[in-house]
Design a binder for these strands. Structure first.
Lengths: 209, 209
DNA sequence: GTCTATATTAGGATAGAC
DNA sequence: GTCTATCCTAATATAGAC
């Protein structure tokens, strides 16, 4: 018999269902069904479906802000950067239900809007820190306006890559491979690297294909 | 008194509401309310809400496929290309409700999935044609793998830019400025242009800011 | 073509027994 | 903590009069 508390099982199963079916398509009945508990029981643990969503969001937020706390004045290596991207894409994939129907979800759970945007800002800021670091190390030659545009592009891609990728095979929505995403992110930065770094970066990005 | 047929008014109003509120949040009652007609009347013209969505999708599809029919073996100029991007972003903006909750919408109207993916493929193909043309004219130096990656990136950006942009100001969902999107697309291609074209492209992209 | 009224259903949520 | 039964509401859709 499982030692995991029902409350946690609800969270885990909800997350899995949200990710695979899309949050709007998952009813409280489906969740309780999947867990073989009664709908009443579910509502004993959470007073609404929105509460489940919010709690999952909080977990997402915590993970993200933790991951995105990129130190400002540290020299970042290419390897550290690709590892960071890897972790980032994994985290996004784990909570991809948020991204898949972002506008919808945020419009129904209004309290999440500001919080999500905060995460987004941190994301862009993290990319900027990384690029700045590369520039300080003369690994990257890039104008301020280009950098702004690049960081926005990186943020956009970090958000939507997996959803976009899923579109190509909407049939099996269970698995998401973060690799292609990391590769794509590296490709975005590639043109701005100095020649030697560019070669290194190319090699690293190959590993993610 | 308006000469426009009720059926068309329903389509126009639905599109506007879908875009501003998100398709899932728009009920048939809201649509008929907005038009000052009865819900029964709405159902006289369309046998379901899904039918409205499908008909709007068909219009979107027609516009898109028409726009994306980029000739393969023609020399494309930078100006033509930016104009193309402009039209593309306008078309996407006009039907942005599709993109805002893509996964959700496609999962509820399954018949649209294949059709949407077809449009997506055409989009990528169009970008490839353009890049190929630039390469033939020696305006662009780019490896096949880079080009593949770039075209995917362009497709992703064309899809999600406006949704992403909206996130920054979720308050007023009425207006969407296609300019920033075109600019961002140009920035993506910029690094691959030959020096002279790069300068030209920079100037052109400035106009879109 | 348009209306009013109503049926149908589904999803979120509560009450009260065990 | 868990269950069963039930309520409430909102949304889709239909019927039938005008």
């Amino acid at each position: 018999m499982s030692k995991v508390k029902t409350r946690d099982r609800i969270l885990i199963t909800s997350l899995a269902l949200f990710n695979s079916q899309g949050e709007p398509n998952v009813t409280t009945l489906l969740i309780s069904d999947e867990l073989d508990i009664s709908p009443g029981n579910l509502y004993y643990h959470f007073k609404s479906k929105g509460d489940i969503v919010e709690e999952l969001f909080t977990a997402f937020e915590t993970e993200m802000l933790d991951l995105l706390a990129v130190p400002e004045d540290v020299d970042i290596t290419l390897d550290q950067q690709s590892f960071f991207l890897h972790l980032l894409f994994e985290a996004v994939a784990r909570y991809r239900f948020l991204y898949q129907d972002l506008v919808n979800v945020l419009s129904r759970y209004e309290r999440l809007q500001a919080r999500f945007r905060r995460v987004l800002k941190k994301k862009t800021a993290a990319f900027r820190s990384i690029c700045e670091s590369f520039r300080r190390q003369n690994m990257m030659g890039i104008e301020p306006t280009e950098m702004h545009s690049l960081c926005e592009q990186l943020t956009l891609t970090a958000c939507y890559w997996s959803a976009f990728d899923t579109l190509s095979h909407l049939d099996d929505r269970e698995s998401v491979d973060p690799g292609r995403g990391v590769y794509q992110m590296m490709q975005l930065m590639l043109p701005y690297f100095a020649p030697e770094q560019q070669e290194r970066a190319k090699l690293i990005s190959q590993d993610y294909l």
